[in-house]
Each structure stands twice: as structure tokens, then as C-alpha cells.
């Protein structure tokens, strides 16, 4: 369907090291600087390849967000048995006093 093609591919994608570092932080991945450089280059390579769709005129296309169209899937408001707290907390890295224990939350973005 050639009428979908509206323009040439755009130029190479460039991701700044700052942008890559920001993404790593958003994803909460501690990535060492040299590893980040390598990964950024790989991401750029992929995004460059993925620029093939930039040639498509998608202005009139509705995004597809469901693989099978369903609507109004609802559940009756009826209580079912819960999981056993001790079993669940035993699987946690740290627990105390019936609760999950975590390091201090300073610096966590709410």
C-alpha cells in the first residue's frame, strides 16, 4: 500500500548519555558508566532500525490497544480466602512484626 509512505526515513537516532542515565534511573537499574555507553549504542542501533515506521502516514490510524475486543469484564464483590501471611512473609527478603521490612525510604520518589 504505497500511499501509506509519506516521507523518507529520518536520520540516525541519538540518545544523550544524560537521557540514557535518566532512563536507567526511571527503571531503577544501576548501570555502570561504561556499560551504559555500550547499552546506549545498542539502543541507538535499534531505534535507528525502528525508524522504518517513520515513513508511514499514521495520522488517520487508531492505536490498537486490545488483541481481542472485550468490554465490561466485571467480578462480583465477594470475598475469597487470603494467602497465609506467614508463608508470604517467609518468602520475603526481610520481614518484621507481620510486615515487609525495607531500608529507609528517603530518596524514594512518591
Amino acid at each position: 500500500m504505497p500511499d501509506r509512505i509519506v516521507k523518507d526515513k529520518s536520520g540516525p537516532v541519538r540518545i544523550t548519555p544524560e537521557a540514557a542515565a535518566k532512563v536507567a534511573h526511571l527503571a531503577r537499574l544501576d548501570i555502570a558508566p561504561d556499560e551504559l555507553v555500550r547499552m546506549t549504542a545498542q539502543l541507538e542501533g535499534m531505534l535507528e532500525h525502528f525508524a522504518d515506521i517513520d515513513a508511514l502516514d499514521l495520522s488517520a490510524v487508531e492505536p490498537m490497544t486490545q488483541a481481542f475486543p472485550l468490554v465490561n469484564v466485571l467480578r462480583a464483590d465477594v470475598v475469597q480466602p487470603c494467602l497465609d501471611r506467614d508463608e508470604v512473609l517467609a518468602a520475603a527478603p526481610a520481614a518484621e512484626d507481620g510486615r515487609f521490612r525495607v531500608p529507609p525510604m528517603i530518596g524514594s520518589g512518591a
Binding site: 534511573h25 531503577r28 537499574l29 544501576d30 525495607v102 531500608p103 529507609p104 528517603i106 530518596g107 524514594s108
Partner: peptide
């Protein structure tokens, strides 16, 4: 790690 954010980053890495 010292705080939750540091724990997330280190754990996931």
C-alpha cells in the same frame, strides 16, 4: 543498600 532507591537499583542490576 542504604535506602530503598539504592536497594532497587542494586537489586535489579
Amino acid at each position: 543498600a542504604a535506602d530503598t532507591n539504592a536497594m532497587y537499583g542494586a537489586t535489579r542490576a
